[in-house]
Design a binder for these strands. Structure first.
Lengths: 335, 335
DNA sequence: CCCTGATGGTGAATCGTTTCAACGACGAGA
DNA sequence: TCTCGTCGTTGAAACGATTCACCATCAGGG
């Protein structure tokens, strides 16, 4: 277990400094020695100790990423994008799933701080602006993901949720729907609140349209099913004729509860639009209309900005905002 | 940035040893001193340096987990289970996604070795048995996930894929189907091969039943769509009347290609059974029959075994095998 | 009044790597 | 022959937390 650089040096008949050079700047070492050292490494099964390396370097070569929900394909795709970009720079991504719980979010940030990560990507949940700004002030770059920074201290890569919400509901209204419900999930989540604001805008533009807000406790399939059952249990006259779901997981749950029961037809009785356009959206009972976000690109871009800021701490914070895109499928087609 | 335990000691007017004691064994320190040290920590914004801690300790307090595909909800659920269990023991889980690529798998194992993780959970892809056994021999426990160990050197937590394959195809045959196709993904993946073996068993038990094997390159929605398009393009007489898909992602892709085109009806023309019973399976165009695996429990169990072996290296390897369960939905109902 | 044990605290050694000043050897140029 | 620069190599310091042998103080028992 305990084979260190010292053992390698001894075996190869050189000093530890030389072994380190072989590992990090082989060009400064003669070929003969490089060969001997590599032989010794192989024979002894030496594996570099990253802790010592980091201790000396003062910081790790990893970046941290905290997402709201690792089970949501939207965030998995962001993570994938970030990992791709990271791999190109020889950086590892530590993935933390806050599971929409502020205390888990805080725990991951603690962990990342103790690890002295090169930077932090975070899709923030609780009110941690102050903490993140302090982190950055102390030299650890922070990039907000899927959420616009509120002031110009931090960089962010996000999607225009307000526009997304407006687009979704405008589309529903154009289909002739008037009694729209927003199946929200937790309104405390900024993205949800922004989508709601966009939805309100769209509804305000059409005189006889109404918007009902149904707040839930999570952005999951299970919660969607729960809310769908509540809707299905209503008398038909009190049901909305259109539902805008805060994300596709909720929408999938809604579909399960509404369509499977057979009482409510989609889109005839209720049209549905989801958000994120996850892979599964095209394969649901009734293929789901959705608002597409460039998830992978978000991850890539965020990581690139993070590394740039890590290399040059003086860089001014940047806000990148992508535009979402409506994808129409059967769940909201004319009916 | 560089506030160390020494700075805290100085500020609190005690020695570094005492600060360390406050952090790790507060009961050995007087209350007054504990208070002063905590004040100093707060005032200076001290954050423990994990690298130094690990260096001294000789190993980290993290475990590594390498999964085949982080986008597959089955593996996300395993990860979730492992994290839950880890959180209870104050251990962090480093998640690596091999993306079905042997070189990425190897890279993550390298990384975990350098980090001196407490142990490794791995859903192995390539032929890395030897490497894993060496790792374990050197003191790092290894638990195979979703795959039974081939000899008794490593522990494993898996599901009986052979039984799962047999169950799935037996069910299709009981529905009166005879021309079964196995949409496989890469046969080099052990789980896929085992499911195929089970399927062969089931087919062999029925005289006039046949099994066609369609090998693919990945276990993804996209690949499923590709293979579904190939099936749909065949003349009806040459199409199978039942498909067993190696996992639900493939099955979802198949559904997209078959049903969306409108030419092939499910289950009337082709019955489909998937594998994993992911959340989305119940919400697909035609709700998908599937083989359910206790994914979360797999993750939990694997992590528990890992930590037990880490605490007591002498422990004999254990093989835990769960039984899968058929969930019948419309995609394979009588038709 | 001395001894014992418990309690609370100290400070140096240690973990494994990287870095850097310094050094020897050697060839080229004067 | 002497000097200088280059190249390859060395060895010790440094990173920051933990641990452990050791010390100081004090209360209580004899």
């Amino acid at each position: 277990m305990a084979v260190s650089i010292r053992d390698v040096a001894e075996r190869a008949g050189v000093s530890v400094g030389t072994v380190s050079n072989v590992l990090n700047r082989p060009d400064r070492v003669s070929d003969a020695v490089v060969g001997r050292v590599h032989d010794a490494i192989r024979e002894l099964g030496y594996v570099r100790n990253d802790a010592a390396r980091q201790l000396r370097a003062g910081r790790s070569s990893s970046v941290g990423l905290v997402v709201l929900d690792a089970r949501n394909p939207f965030f998995t795709d962001i993570a994938r994008g970030a990992e791709d970009e990271a791999a190109e720079h020889g950086v590892a991504v530590l993935l933390g799933d806050s599971d929409e719980k502020p205390e888990r979010e805080a725990a991951y940030l603690d962990l990342f701080e103790e690890q002295r990560v090169r930077g932090v990507l975070v899709s923030p949940l609780g009110d941690i602006r102050e903490r993140l700004e302090r982190l950055r002030a102390l030299g650890t770059p922070v990039v907000l993901v899927d959420r616009m920074a509120e002031d110009d201290v931090l960089s962010s890569v996000s999607v225009d949720d307000h526009a997304g919400g407006r687009t979704a509901v405008t589309h529903l209204l154009e289909q002739g729907r008037r009694r729209v419900a927003f199946v929200a999930g937790p309104l405390a989540i900024r993205q949800v609140a922004d989508r709601l604001a966009g939805a309100r805008d769209a509804v305000a533009a059409v005189p006889d349209a109404t918007l009902e807000v149904l707040e839930g406790t999570a952005l999951s399939v299970l919660e969607g099913r729960r809310m769908g059952e509540a809707l299905a249990a209503r008398p038909a006259s009190e049901r909305p004729d259109a539902v805008f779901a805060a994300n596709d997981l909720l929408a999938v749950g809604l579909l399960q509860a509404l369509v499977m029961r057979g009482e409510v037809r989609v889109p005839e009785d209720v049209a549905i639009v989801g958000y994120d356009d996850i892979d599964f959206a095209a394969a649901t009972v009734v293929p789901l209309s959705s608002i597409r976000q460039p998830s992978r690109l978000i991850g890539q871009t965020a990581l690139r900005i993070l590394l740039e800021e890590a290399d040059d701490p003086g860089l001014a914070p940047r806000q990148v905002v992508f535009q979402p895109e409506l994808v129409v499928r059967e769940s909201s087609a004319i009916g």
